[in-house]
Amino acid sequence: MFRAVISEAKEFKKVIDAASNLLDEICFEVNEEGIKARAMDPSHVALVSIDIPKEAFEEYEADVHDIGVDLEAFKKIMNRAKAKDKLILELDEEKNKLNVIFKGAATRKFALALYDVSSSNLQVPDIEYPNEILIKAGPFVDALKDADLVNDHVTLKVEDGKFIVYAKGDLNESETIFEEDSESIISMNIGENAKSTFNLEYLRDMTKAASSSDILKIYLGTDMPVKIEYDVAGANLTFLLAPRIES
């Protein structure tokens, strides 16, 4: 069996949005501890990892199940959530559906078809990073928006104790400099100068579920995948994005 009650459907919607920006389908592995999912996007450029401990739920009860769903369909259903709705997720093993129930002014039920999405057994690779930056999501997303004006990729740099978001197009350039004492920065754990370049659209998608005051943990090296972690509605979201390199 699997049944979970989430007090704010709108918050859970952000988790589904974050995944659906990058993935077509996902397998939620549920057990008595909580829900987890790991998947790479079809091009293997990005990885999404979702962990929701049972404590994040108002009620939670589960045995071991793999629940594979089409994310576009799930997202469309979650878009129907009203501001004060509670969300109930329950597995209907007989009908092979995931019931998605909104409880608010009325009780609205959707039955979402299950897909045979095999659980990936993917692990987030245990990469050692020289730099770890804790930054407010708002200013970081703004820096990405600035970069978006000049090119479709962006360079994230650690240089002389500063975190820099830099983009260069054929004609124009943009640069946002975060110093350690800037109010956007919570903390910087700097080991060495580093620089990696990334596709901007992926980075935008990965940060979409974060509210501007949420705190992103960014792990950065040179020509290494960037790792971005944050929490939404008690769920831990981790994203990994492969770099572009000069060849």
Binding site: P125, A242, S247
Partner: peptide, 12 residues
């Protein structure tokens, strides 16, 4: 010329 890597290279 820039090349987009995949994550597979880092899963070793």
């Amino acid at each position: 010329k820039a090349k987009q890597l995949t994550l597979d290279a880092f899963f070793k």
